[in-house]
Design a protein around this nucleic acid. Structure first.
Lengths: 146, 146
DNA sequence: CTGCAAGTTGAAGTGAACTTCAACTCAAGG
DNA sequence: CCTTGAGTTGAAGTTCACTTCAACTTGCAG
């Protein structure tokens, strides 16, 4: 068991395509050292970092924001436990928000099932529109953080 | 209070840009009748449909899938209460899955905060990779339905 | 009737997140 | 050594979900 992973190994273990890993590297989300023959070698810790990136991206956070968050962990070095804890907590509140949003949508949908949604005023999903309209133009802001 | 909305009115009340509404119409997600002068007029019921589309899209469901789901509601006509109930239930389980996923990620992140995540074996987020790797190659499947 | 905001079209542009391609070079087993 | 699968690059292509543009036409308030 060595501790340097090739891009293929990192890809296999993270489930992220090699092309995507190179892309992440170009964007500065991950990094590698190089062999004499110019091939990438990743520290095993990069696996954790890639997992974090994927999970965050799937939650809808843009790569640039993820990059910024990770960059706040001391530049280039493997994060310390304290760094990781801090970042995890921040991300957790992000997840909590997202979960709360989905639960709200779900509950509104439940109301809709009840009300039939064709008649009316009392439907949350229906009335939500006017609420949103009153908050100004542009795409619906459900996902936005200010 | 008439019951036909111009594209501008539908836009204002749904919070979706007119260009996006035309785009949805091209994709067959919504439809309109036309005035003598070829301007779109939307039934008020379209407001509910647009709300449904937006909420679904924000939950990460691609427009084409939303279109397909809506198409299952009897073609072109305003859905009956039964149609709507059926669709809502299906969508609800979709939301439930998504919520469950996020909760799982959150809990794993909590474990990570605890374990420091640098030491290793015991971290859910970390070990998840190998789990994924064992399920074959390709991008992480967290969001996929088979 | 006129003025002008609001609407129309098809085509092209945008940005995010990747993937694909061509044309190589590297590394490791037999 | 040699073959072959894995890796390298920059540039271009792809998909999704829209937006922008240019060149018009409509509809309604005054």
């Amino acid at each position: 068991m060595q501790n340097a992973l090739t891009i293929g190994e990192l890809s296999a273990r993270s489930g992220v395509a090699p092309s995507a890993l190179r892309y992440y590297e170009r964007l500065g989300l991950i990094w590698s050292s190089r062999t004499g023959g110019n091939q990438r070698r990743y520290e095993r810790a990069m696996l954790r970092r890639v997992a974090f990136i994927r999970v965050s991206a799937q939650v809808g956070i843009p790569l640039e924001e993820i990059r910024a968050a990770l960059a706040s962990l001391g530049d280039g070095r493997t994060p310390t436990k304290a760094d990781w804890t801090r970042l995890s907590r921040a991300w957790r509140s992000r997840l909590d928000e997202r979960i709360a949003l989905l639960e709200k949508v779900r509950d509104q949908l439940d109301d809709c099932i009840g009300c039939g949604c064709l008649s009316l005023k009392s439907c949350g999903l229906y009335n939500r529109d006017d609420e949103l309209a009153s908050k100004g133009p542009g795409p619906v802001k459900l996902l936005r953080r200010d």
